[in-house]
Amino acid sequence: MYEISHLLKEYFAELDPLRRREILDSLPADDDTEFLRALYASRYSDHENKGRKNVDWWLWRCICLQILYGRGRFLRTFRNREVAGIIGELFMNDSHHTFLYHEYRNTARRYLSTCNSANYASRMMGFRQASDEEKVIRACQDIWQMSAGIAKSAGVEAEMHLWVESFRDELYEYSPVCREEYERLNK
């Protein structure tokens, strides 16, 4: 399922936006490449027009989904409306499942690549740094919240199915502990 060519594998494995652009430019011009270009443009554009370069808009939407998961019940209507907006922005209703699946995994991988930083999951105002194990557990929780958690909470599991599946698969590859933690959170 979701099989892709060697060159595309390289494209979806790369996390650096500039390097990805180079690979994208080297792809033959066809409908698939056009769709990938559309995905690229959507993902690495400064949608708020604040003059920033190489903004990973999708990564920002991941963080937004996680924040929305933590919102109180009294703001649920506003929250669900925003989640619906994000579903549209991230092409979740589109039929190019294979490309979307890999692009979502790439987004999840980029998020996970930040989960090794020194201050990630630190405690007591950064005074106590987290252990590697704590960082992995926290990363699992973050990924779950921004995918399965928010989908469940907002009642949009069907619409976010591909997103949830790709994030889960990426997480399972991240660390062996993640499967158990993810399943625990899913209960």
Binding site: R52, V55, L59, I63, T114, D142
Partner: peptide, 13 residues
């Protein structure tokens, strides 16, 4: 976002 994951916030603009 910054409180949750500073590095991811930086990457997301």
């Amino acid at each position: 976002a910054i409180g949750g994951n500073e590095e991811a916030s930086e990457l997301s603009g």
